[in-house]
Design a binder for these strands. Structure first.
Ligand SMILES: [Zn+2]
Ligand SMILES: [Zn+2]
Ligand SMILES: [Zn+2]
Ligand SMILES: [Zn+2]
Lengths: 132, 132
DNA sequence: TAACAAACGTTATATTATAACAATATGATA
DNA sequence: TATCATATTGTTATAATATAACGTTTGTTA
């Protein structure tokens, strides 16, 4: 019944490794890490990633072509994502901030376009890197 | 004196083709289009793109790996970009909205991180595609 | 159990981007 | 003008990221 059980074998393997990582993982680094578990080809990784993204279990950090597990249990279906990215140490953190998400989810302009989804990436210096 | 004059030959050629395009251009499609002008290698394109981005003349649409000319003369240096992207016709438009940029430029959270730059991509249906 | 959809495995290939090296051009300044 | 520094160019090769196409297997459900 838990959502995790609806995941297939490869999807579980790959979600697991992404969840355990401390930083966003790139597809081929995931591939390298799961070869001992029998996943041999890029497509196997990319297919799992695609599914996990659809389910909101992971997100893609577009500016880095890398994948992170979703920390904010809010976004079961990933249609509103925001990240902070340190330009020095490259630390990536998912931003969970109601003021921000409320603002963006209700954003409208004069284009007549209906926004269903967004991805926001902030860049700057993290606490540690600011000090140096 | 005009900023355009500080651009090199290759940079001008590539900015020109991006400005004339009606949609975001991919690097290799740019390459194909400028081969008659003597630009033969990917690196020549990527180097010009990199410089043009730094100058704020163009932006990269991360989710599409494509490049658009900056329309909003506000962002001379591109540190705050926002796009709307239609999921059907793939039309991409740079959003110039003061309420949005003011909100994001002054956004702070409890992470202690100082945000200097952001990129936001909205997805949805454009006016035309909503009707069908 | 028949029919369908989702996931899998595999090979090959497409697409996007950078490394490394050498030459030339440009602009500032002594 | 000579010289120094920096930016730009040209070129070949290669790295990194992602998908096409094919057939098989597994799971669901009518
Ligand atoms: Zn999330
Ligand atoms: Zn940092
Ligand atoms: Zn712009
Ligand atoms: Zn559209």
């Amino acid at each position: 019944m838990a959502q995790i059980q609806t995941l297939s074998k490869n999807q579980k393997i790959i979600l697991d490794i992404i969840e355990k990582a401390k930083e966003p993982l790139k597809a081929y680094s995931i591939l390298f890490n799961v070869q001992k578990k029998g996943i041999k080809a890029p497509l196997q990784v990319y297919r799992a990633l695609e599914k996990l993204i659809k389910l909101g279990k992971i997100h893609k950090v577009e500016s880095k072509n890398a994948f992170v597990a979703c920390k904010s249990s809010n976004c079961e279906v990933s249609k509103a994502t925001a990240f902070s990215i340190c330009e020095i140490c490259e630390k990536v953190t998912e931003i969970a901030n109601n003021k921000l998400s409320n603002f963006l989810n209700s954003f409208e302009d004069k284009s007549g376009m209906k926004y269903k989804k967004y991805n926001l990436e902030f860049f700057g210096l993290c606490k540690k890197c600011k000090k140096t």
